[in-house]
């Protein structure tokens, strides 16, 4: 007895050492970042004008800045714009990515070439994408030119200078850029589907569509949620393409949260307002992430149970 106990104790302390040797650098990293968040808190509760004093002399104003941000119409609009941008581009990425994954997950000849090309946009630097599309999208430019040739009529879409079109354009660019991401995730999900279930269902006479809807989709749910959530959160933060192409214009059509935040802090140097805004954005993001986590955990549990049921059933 004693020896087993000692071995266990030794093991446990060994694990503790191992655990802390991993966690210590991690916590040090967080500690290193702590001042950033403290500074941010300081700025959001003080009113600091770059033009009047140094930052450590700013006046304490409590929640005034937050109140100002919350009543700022431009901020409301930017939230709405960001939500539209993120939802639409996420939906687009998902539909195209999932579609491609469905077409691609059974290998065929030349599969590799398509694959490499399909992930290319993700490998391209966003600023490059912005400048390239600037060359492609002018009214008499190549994109309208090719569309006109294909459709046989004169296409004169104003991609970048019309407020609604500009929003659609940045959404399309985001879809172009990040479809590979959902594509790969969905491909991973699809290739992990158990083949036996397929076989069994087919023997029972189920149609392709039924197999897909009643077997594949439930099993894919967690992956779908994952792809959608990650993409949505990344899309909320999109900045380089929108900024390089449109700087929030035309009018204020593309003034999303990151663009407005950038202007407030780096153009207007309203550091306090920017900090308060950042905190509000951060809180919203954290709420989204937390609910996303709940969904994901729930889905994962369901999936595990499903597989367990399958294993015990066999």
């Amino acid at each position: 007895m004693a020896t087993t106990f000692e071995i266990r104790k030794k093991q446990r302390s060994g694990i503790a050492i191992f655990k802390w040797s991993l966690l210590t650098p991690f916590f040090l990293l967080l500690l290193f970042l702590l001042p950033v968040f403290l500074l941010q808190i300081y700025f959001s509760f003080h009113s600091w004008s770059v033009y009047l004093s140094t930052w450590w002399e700013a006046d304490f104003v409590g929640f005034d800045t937050f109140a100002e941000v919350l009543s700022d119409e431009r901020f409301h609009w930017s939230i709405l714009r960001s939500l539209i941008f993120a939802s639409a581009s996420t939906a687009g990425c998902f539909v195209v990515g999932f579609g491609l994954a469905l077409l691609m997950y059974r290998p065929f000849k030349g599969h590799g070439v398509y694959y490499v090309f399909f992930i290319l946009p993700m490998l391209t630097v966003p600023v490059v994408i912005a400048y390239t599309f600037e060359m492609l999208l002018y009214q008499k430019g190549p994109v309208n030119g090719i569309l006109s040739a294909l459709l046989g009529t004169d296409i004169n879409v104003i991609w970048l200078a019309h407020p609604t079109m500009a929003v659609i354009t940045v959404i399309l660019l985001e879809i172009w850029n990040w479809t590979p991401f959902t594509f790969i995730i969905m491909l991973a999900g699809l290739s992990a589907l158990p083949e036996e279930l397929n076989e069994a269902a087919r023997i029972l006479g189920a149609s392709r569509w039924r197999i897909f809807r009643e077997i594949h989709l439930p099993l894919l749910r967690p992956v779908i949620f994952l792809a959608v959530i990650l993409r949505f959160l990344e899309a909320i933060g999109e900045f380089p393409k929108t900024w390089a192409l449109l700087q929030g214009g035309p009018g204020s059509a593309t003034e999303t949260i990151p663009v407005y935040l950038f202007m407030t802090t780096w153009d207007y140097f309203q550091i306090s307002k920017g900090a308060a805004m950042s905190y509000l954005v951060m809180i919203v993001m954290i709420l989204i992430v937390l609910s996303a986590i709940r969904i994901l955990m729930h889905e994962k549990k369901n999936l595990d149970e499903m597989y367990q049921a399958k294993e015990t059933g066999e």
């Binding site: 920017g274 950042s278 954005v281």
Partner: peptide, 8 residues
């Protein structure tokens, strides 16, 4: 989003 913490 990185822009959120850029100034601090």
């Amino acid at each position: 989003p990185p822009i959120v913490v850029a100034v601090p």
